[in-house]
Design a protein around this nucleic acid. Structure first.
Lengths: 217, 217
DNA sequence: GTCACTAATGGACGATCGTCCATTAAATGT
DNA sequence: ACATTTAATGGACGATCGTCCATTAGTGAC
């Protein structure tokens, strides 16, 4: 009747036709994020998530111990995926100029890979409930330490050439992240009228003002 | 037994001891916003709102026709209140310099009157569900036409003195609003570590870079 | 093939959701 | 004073919520 071929894992072992707890956990997380992006957190219920994932209603309690934990896991997954993609997109050679490294972060953050309808909706949905959901709050901050450090270091290199007061580096870092936040909001509010190129240029222009001579054009 | 004095309206007529539909509508809106700030949109139910307002459960359907409409009305009220307060705080004399007018907007937006735990939580809660709630979406945009126009006009006056390309005014306007958005997010994320003065100075510094010689110190 | 074990199912459960309405209470008109 | 109108109440209603568990099904060991 049917071929009983076992689907092979990348690692070659384990992984049969049915029964794959880890895959199902990922499937539930995916379904959760898709549902949030589609109909909003408010209407995202256990039933709806299971319905979308094609799994049974008991799975959430089985694998995550409840809806709240699934939501937290989804937020964590989403955050990790964002920063992983950010890393991938900003992997310049180690000899890249600090300006280029800063601009790489900006362009990555505003690229379609990171800034798209799905991610913006999810991001703001999580942020909106973060203050009443401790688990999610941990993953709804832009203050990823590594990314902040990347910017801070780059700005430091730029600043010490034309030495200025110490706050410049901190202000440039915080200001850049704040500007990017604002761009995401603009995108969420009006996706049609949003222009990635114009947004990149706007941030660049602000940085050009902060570091005269740098970030030109 | 009891004095039957009618409480007098400012207008002197109408307004008795009980039965005040308009006041109850406002009470419900207030209770809705307080509940959202307190326990989040997700847990804000009809019962909880009524419980907080001290009114009966039937009132919402009676006065607003349903929860959704109440939420929309609350978003509208919140937005209107924000802009009214913004107006009040930026009511400089008509001879104020454009720089002062811009800085007034920035300082108002970051003042405790507008930026406080309650307003930030409500604001982001509404924004989070805006994309799945058409009624709320209309009131969760920073793009209040009047405020944008205020900034645009001020930047125009500044720009034409040291004439530059046409995009400068638009970029300064959009960038300022984006920076302020980012500051609100910073505040929501870390209220303890947030400094109003430093945030104002950060925005000023970016503008100083954009308009050399202006916005100094 | 049998057994032990774990993944997965889907329905039962009480709680709560939002809506609606018959009833009561207050204000107004005559 | 009484009738009319409108505000306000609070419980009934079915639907859906999230949790939990008895049961079934798939897997690996022997």
């Amino acid at each position: 009747m049917e071929s009983f071929d076992k689907m092979k894992d990348p690692k070659g072992r384990k992984r049969s036709s049915k029964r794959d707890p880890e895959a199902n956990k990922q499937l539930l997380i995916k379904a959760t994020l898709d549902t949030i992006a589609d109909i909003g957190v408010t209407d995202t219920s256990v039933s709806r998530i299971c319905e979308r994932s094609g799994l049974s209603r008991g799975m959430i309690h089985l694998h995550f111990g409840g809806k709240d934990n699934l939501l937290t896991a989804a937020a964590q997954h989403f955050s990790a995926q964002y920063y992983a993609e950010m890393d991938r997109l900003t992997d310049l050679g180690s000899d890249a100029s600090p300006e280029d490294r800063v601009m790489a972060v900006i362009e990555a953050d505003l690229s379609e890979a990171l800034l798209n309808p799905r991610s913006t909706k999810i991001w703001h949905a999580f942020r909106g409930i973060a203050s009443s959901h401790a688990g999610i709050a941990r993953y709804s901050s832009t203050q990823d330490q590594k990314l902040v450090e990347t910017l801070r270091l780059a700005f430091k290199e730029i600043a010490q050439e034309n030495k200025r007061d110490s706050n410049l580096v901190e202000d440039a870092t915080a200001g850049t992240l704040a500007l990017l936040e604002g761009m995401w909001v603009n995108y969420l509010t009006d996706m049609q009228g949003f222009s990635r190129r114009r947004s990149v240029d706007l941030v660049r222009r602000f940085l050009c003002g902060l570091f005269p001579g740098k970030f030109k054009l």
